[in-house]
Nucleic acid binder design. Structure first.
Lengths: 191, 191
DNA sequence: CGCGGGTTTGATGATGCTCAAGCCCGGTGG
DNA sequence: CCACCGGGCTTGAGCATCATCAAACCCGCG
């Protein structure tokens, strides 16, 4: 059940089968339906999730009730609100299933125990965080240096598989413009 | 010399004086003049820096030779290009001293040795990365949900001390608009 | 004193938003 | 099995925000 997670860990640190078996005690597999919420803005984020199957996103709602998607996660990605999870403060974001979703959930109150049991995971999570940080940096870089239209084409070529899986209004809210504008970009290309 | 760094570490993990002394072997204190570069775009980032005194920034240049400041670091903050540092790939960013700068530099080729010598630092760096990630998340959130003018006032109230230390063209390039526009925002307030 | 980097000011214009209407299509209930 | 409903996508007109360009200004420094 947690094989994909152990495989993922092995991409970054040595991790034997015994450790892998111990790992299982700390995780619960959960499933969510399309559009279900794993977390709502204002709640404390009590778990971090490793996506086994499906797709989810974090987003928040600003003025005018406009949604802003913060990031997406598919199979093999971690998803959480790091700040809320670590510091047990109210979250700034919603976490929502985009598709039918299966995740391995690590509860906050089990996390420290896990790191004591398997201290080599400190390094794993450090590396995961570094990569998430690098991704966030690239996101800011693209937001600054590319126009809306360029961001769309950049995304479309780097993640073609996402174009199928994500509704356009979510993609627009991720790229930082309105669904109407996305629609107009697409119209240009086709004609 | 490295006292501020040890103090910083103690804010997150237990860290005795012996460890603190050992730490010193792995760091070099370096100084840079205003506008000097710690790293240039395209080079591999061979160190991560803990700021002891002064201020520095990361930035990149996009089309039209316009600069985009990615983030600032002052006393007590870490600065590096995480992606380049970890994976030894060419950096996407410049790192530059904004003011006269003194840093404690940890070289990439000493880093793994440091973590073996003082493995409790794995946790420290994990936490540091988590906080950097949370900051990056908030940055994206503000970019999305606030207008240019709102971002300026938000920044000015949260970091008033920065307004003194940073030239306005750098602040504009951090907030995501032009120096001319920043000037116009300020003109509004004063009149 | 003059130079030059940084800031200000104004005119013009592009990018992308708002609002409103219509369309497409899958799902649900009669 | 069809009608209807509603969510999501499209299209267009008008408009706000902010960029671009150009000129003038300010002021610290050589």
């Amino acid at each position: 059940m947690l094989q994909p997670l152990c495989d993922h860990i092995r991409r970054f640190i040595p991790f034997d089968d015994v450790s892998c078996a111990r790992l299982a005690q700390f995780f619960e597999v959960e499933t969510y339906k399309r559009k279900a919420f794993l977390l709502r803005e204002g709640e404390v984020c009590t778990a971090q999730y490793f996506v086994l199957e499906g797709c989810c996103r974090t987003f928040f709602t600003a003025a005018n009730d406009t949604e802003h998607t913060h990031l997406f996660a598919i199979e093999g990605w971690w998803m959480t609100d790091a700040q809320s999870f670590e510091q047990r403060t109210p979250s700034q974001f919603h976490i929502q299933a985009v598709e039918q979703l299966r995740v391995a959930a690590l509860r906050r109150d089990l996390r420290d125990g896990l790191l004591e049991t398997l201290p080599q995971l400190e390094r794993y999570f450090r590396i995961i965080n570094e990569r998430a940080l690098a991704a966030a940096n690239m996101r800011v870089k693209y937001l600054f240096s590319l126009s809306g239209e360029e961001r769309y084409h950049n995304f479309a070529t780097r993640f073609p598989e996402f174009l199928q899986r994500i509704p356009q209004y979510m993609l627009a809210s991720y790229l930082g413009f309105t669904p109407e504008f996305l629609s107009k970009i697409r119209a240009k290309r086709i004609s």
